[in-house]
Design a protein around this nucleic acid. Structure first.
Length: 419
DNA sequence: TCTGGGGTCCTAGGACCC
DNA sequence: TCTGGGGTCCTAGGACCC
């Protein structure tokens, strides 16, 4: 039996744990740069605000409805997520953290009654220990557990649902096929075009039809919904394939020197993450783009370079990235975003040295980077940076409505009044 | 004024091998 | 007149996820 435990409106729920004034009110959490809504409370959803709604279009509407908007506080959400996941792991040996707010658990085969009582116990424990409300779906495949969760969130008061051979058809009638795990907007549109709207209608489709139009991933979804497990539990997180670091700018940037600062910062950010995972990258891509939403000349482009030897060094990565940036840059555009991607990731303990050059500097570089990383871990990120990241960073993203780091900074610890 | 960031997998087509 | 069969690797683009 698979269980999918998913936190309700996770980012909003994290904020509400420490700020009770947010309860019962429409709350939205904004994307980076305070751009658009990435998480909404039920009250905000009920007002008809869609996910992805740009703040500037909805701000006065929210104000009129006593609503709240907050910048993303990933430090808080990451820490709350860890608490939730640690607790979930106590309920099953097989626990796969699937995203920041959800995890799969696997157990031996259970009756509907025992599955529901386990789900209820998990839900109650997480709520009591962390303050985060959850919904839990159970089924004999991961996709069915996901579907049960989607159903529970909308239709079951205690947020728990178990799909069995007996109730499957009935429950899947209530789940729109567009909500099924693995079916995105394109396939939902395709299915709607063929008159398929509910998941119950989808599971009767011929396998050959689905294979032909929705590829093997679509076929897997179909089989899973019909009770054939195709997607296993991932006991260990699979090896990372790529690392991306990119941001939109707070204000448009037209100067190469400023773009270069941002590429340096994102390069360092990506390289730091690379080192924390004990990996090296063997190629990197830089891209730049203007604002697609604006009625002005657009330009976007990207370039990739294969490195002479795999590396995790911030100076090497940022140097190569800047070289690429210079080939991409065109004068006369207002740029909105730059980004850097690292690919060809290999474990550091399998480092391939260069055949054609001295390798001493690799060791030296590596020592320099570990000193930099340990200083930044001990005294806070950005204690030591490359000067090329710039000192003013006028392009930095906006975070106007940020809540305190309630759980990770001494000075931000919430105060409890006792009088 | 103002619209996010970070990932994976699959497929088709081209270039290449014998 | 007529032009095979069986592969690999790489890349771009598209689909999906949170």
């Amino acid at each position: 039996m698979y269980f999918l435990a998913d936190c309700n409106n996770f980012y909003v729920s994290c904020e509400r744990v420490f700020n009770p004034r947010l309860r019962g009110r429409p709350v939205i959490i904004l994307s980076n740069n305070d751009g658009c809504a990435v998480a909404l409370s039920n009250e905000a959803k009920a007002l008809g605000i869609p996910r992805g709604a740009p703040l500037f279009k909805w701000r006065s509407f929210l104000d009129r409805h006593n609503g709240i908007y907050l910048s993303s506080n990933y430090t808080l959400y990451g820490d709350m997520s860890r608490r939730v996941m640690d607790l979930l792991a106590t309920f099953s040996e097989e626990c796969e953290v699937y995203s920041i707010d959800e995890a799969f658990l696997a157990t031996e085969s259970l009756s509907e009654k025992s599955a529901l009582s386990l789900a209820e116990e998990i839900r109650e424990t997480i709520l009591r220990c962390t303050g985060i409300p959850m919904s839990i779906g159970a089924g004999t495949t991961k996709t069915l557990a996901k579907a049960a969760n989607a159903y529970a969130k909308k239709n079951v008061k205690n947020g728990c649902c178990c799909i069995t051979d007996f109730n499957r058809k009935k429950i899947l009638q209530m789940v729109p096929v567009s909500q099924v795990w693995g079916i995105g907007v394109q396939h939902a549109r395709l299915l709607a075009h063929h008159g398929i709207n509910t998941t119950a209608e989808f599971i009767d489709m011929p396998e050959s039809w689905v294979r032909k139009r929705m590829a093997v991933t679509g076929l897997r979804t179909l089989l899973e919904l019909n009770g054939t497990p195709c997607i296993k539990m991932e006991k260990y997180p699979p090896n990372r394939r790529s690392i991306v670091s990119s941001r939109s700018f707070g204000t448009p940037v037209s100067k190469l020197a400023l773009l270069s600062e941002s590429v340096h910062e994102y390069g360092c950010r990506a390289a730091t993450r690379l080192r924390s995972m004990n990996l090296l990258c063997s190629s990197l891509t830089v891209y730049i783009a203007t604002n697609l939403f604006k009625d002005e000349p657009h330009y976007s482009n990207s370039a990739t370079v294969t490195l002479n030897y795999p590396t995790d060094s911030s100076p090497i990565i940022t140097k190569e990235a800047t070289r690429l940036l210079h080939t991409l840059f065109k004068e006369g555009y207002q740029y909105k975003k730059t980004g850097i991607m690292l690919h060809g990731l290999t474990p550091k303990d399998e480092q391939q040295y260069s055949l054609f050059s001295q390798n001493d500097h690799i060791e030296r570089d590596s020592r320099l980077m570990s000193v930099m990383d340990s200083l930044n871990i001990r005294y806070g990120s950005k204690t030591v940076v490359l000067a090329s990241e710039g000192l003013t960073q006028s392009w930095q993203m906006k975070r106007q409505f940020l809540s305190p780091a309630y759980t990770t900074r001494w000075s931000d610890l919430p105060c409890v009044k006792t009088e």
